[in-house]
Amino acid sequence: MLVALKRIIHSGWLSFRRQTALSFATVSIMMMAIFLITSLFLLQGMTKFLIADLQDKVDISVYFKKDSSEEDILRVKAELSENPEIKNVAYVSREEALEKFIERHKEDQILIESLAEVGENPLLASLNIKAWQASQYTAISIFLEKGPYQELIEKVDYYRNKEVIGRIFEISSNINLAGIIFSLILGFIAIVVAFNTTRLAIYNSREEISIMRLVGASSWFVRGPFIVQGVIVGVIATLLTVLVFTIGVFFFSSRIDLFIPGFSLFGYFKAHFFTLLFIQLATGVGLGVISSWIAVRKYLKV
């Protein structure tokens, strides 16, 4: 058994080495398939980051009446925080609101002067609320406006932003869906191309397969070397693709950062390196083995 395995591996390696042109062709096609799948993985990472970034910008603010005490507001905040549909709640006191206002408009002398004219802080304390889903904002604003705290609340600036919020969530879920469909189609194409390349390569060997059968080789003894070749092609293609990506990502990471501020492609690549390597190996070796298996089976019926 062990001797047979050794012979199968040796024979697979020998065929891989001898059929230089064919091996080169299958490795490069397999590299393209792995390259595509790796790109899709990184693209997915970027899309997720972009969507999260976009959704993070969406919130609603509840303004409290001037005479509401900080204690009351924090009570509202505590209750909202317990709601599982709410991602987070941030409290902005009247003083903080004023500071931010001055900071933002420090260039605008007239505005600052008129603020001084008013004499007191005209701004209201508020809570900034972020929900997980856009659809939850309606329920949250109804709860605030009609619920037990309606006495404390001056206004909820939801309805003004309602449309924009809806659009942002709609766009981001569309991007996500398009990404998934795009990935599936490209992934499918990559798999079909790699699969058919292996089949063509083995088609070349159909005569040899029938001779091996006629001199008494078992199916496994015939099939084994082709599967070994599939594994070798998969592993070499994976290693080469990893090399290309490591170098590519290292050099292009800073440029990507210009398009998507805050996203480090190299960091993402490094953080997911082993997941990625696993996906690449599974793609390369899996495709090599499965397509060899299926292609050889057809010619074994001698």
Binding site: S15, R18, Q19, S205, E207, E208, I211, M212, R213, L214, V215, G216, A217, S218, S219, K301
Partner: peptide
């Protein structure tokens, strides 16, 4: 049965008219 066939063929040595050597 197909899986038993190799055993039969190992009992028979064949000199094929068209040689049928393994070209690889």
């Amino acid at each position: 049965k197909p899986e038993e066939l190799p055993r039969l063929r190992r009992r028979i040595g064949v000199i094929f008219q068209d040689y049928r050597l393994l070209s690889s």
